[in-house]
Design a protein around this nucleic acid. Structure first.
Length: 310
DNA sequence: ACCGGTCCCTGTTAGC
DNA sequence: TGCTAACAGGGACCGG
């Protein structure tokens, strides 16, 4: 499931393989995959065709390619800065097909861009929670660059509410710690709140909480400053390690930009490990229902608080 | 303004 | 064997 490290792996791959290319042709094979596009699939094709891909940027789990201004619109109006934005959902992949390679038609190919070098950029998404859209860029709240890889202080409009992530040099950590402690919810819900801090999903939330020895239901307003710092440090570390390993993958639903699976899942301490022994204390890892999903903990290392919130 | 619950999607797997 | 239910889960959306 693509969380920050996986999306960053994709961003890095796009930055190395598609920048400078012009999109010559666009095929939308599944309208639902561009459901957030203002103007619909036709507008998507119109806005992308003929544009040059100029930078690959990421904030949290959102990823976007800056588009050049293209031809003047002929009506004397400004051609605004725009971006081709992608959210991979839980199974989305952006696959770069090299020029001259066999045109692979993946079973879940949703959108195909044909580039001027003869290669393709394919959006493949089995479960269709992901989507693509072309959007205007809007200024960031603080004027700092919009995300990793960004030359400009701007964000795609649909991602304007997304907070900075833990690998963003412009993140204000003390302000984040204070904001977490002001929340009235459980710590795992807070970690998953993309408007508070972005990029953390179910996997890294559970791994970070295990490393920090905190239970997911700990009320945020009972956490000491040091406890919040500990779990944020843990999340930063686990995501950095996953990134170094090329991202986490469970079942080949997720592959990186060139189709290679990540392998960090071999290092997961609790996520998906129900019934296995905790590597720190040997107690069996348990799975709880949480937000219609799951939360994995070591009951010894992460005792449930008397008054929990979730 | 904030918080928590529900639903959107599809393919795989577990269980009867 | 063949069916159904559970499950994976980010985020938009809505009601309190």
């Amino acid at each position: 499931m693509p969380e920050l490290p996986e999306v960053e792996t994709v961003r890095d791959g796009l930055a190395r393989h598609v920048l400078g290319r012009v999109v010559e042709h666009v095929e939308v094979l599944r309208d639902y995959s561009v459901r957030r596009q203002v103007g619909g699939p036709g507008a998507f094709v119109g806005w992308v065709t003929g544009r040059r891909l100029e930078a690959a940027v990421r904030r949290g789990k959102y990823l976007w390619l800056l588009l050049d201004a293209g031809e003047p619109d002929g009506r004397g109006g400004d051609v605004r800065d725009s971006a081709l934005m992608a959210h991979l959902g839980m199974s989305g992949q952006l696959l770069v097909r090299a020029p001259g390679s066999e045109p692979v038609v993946a079973p879940h190919l949703r959108v195909r861009l044909t580039l001027d070098d003869g290669g393709h950029l394919d959006f493949v998404d089995q479960r269709t929670f992901g989507h693509l859209a072309v959007t205007d860029l809007v200024p960031t709240d603080d004027g700092a660059p919009g995300g990793l890889g960004s030359p400009v202080a701007a964000l795609p409009e649909p991602a304007r509410h997304i907070a900075r992530d833990l690998l963003d040099p412009a993140l204000d950590r003390p302000a984040l710690v204070a904001a977490v402690r002001r929340k009235r919810t459980g710590i795992k819900r807070a970690l998953l709140d993309q408007t508070l801090v972005s990029g953390i999903g179910n996997i890294y939330a559970d791994e970070a909480l295990w490393r920090a020895r905190l239970h997911y239901a700990r009320p945020t307003d009972t956490l000491r400053r040091g406890e919040v710092e500990r779990v944020l440090d843990a999340a930063t570390q686990v995501m950095t390690q996953a990134l170094a390993a090329g991202g986490t993958s469970f079942d080949a639903l997720y592959v990186n930009v060139n189709g290679a699976s990540g392998y960090f899942d071999r290092s997961l301490a609790v996520y998906g490990q129900a019934g296995r022994a905790c590597s720190r204390c040997g107690t069996l890892v348990r799975r709880d229902e949480f937000m219609n999903r799951s939360a994995f903990t070591c009951p010894m290392c992460q005792p449930r608080p008397r008054r929990g919130r979730w």
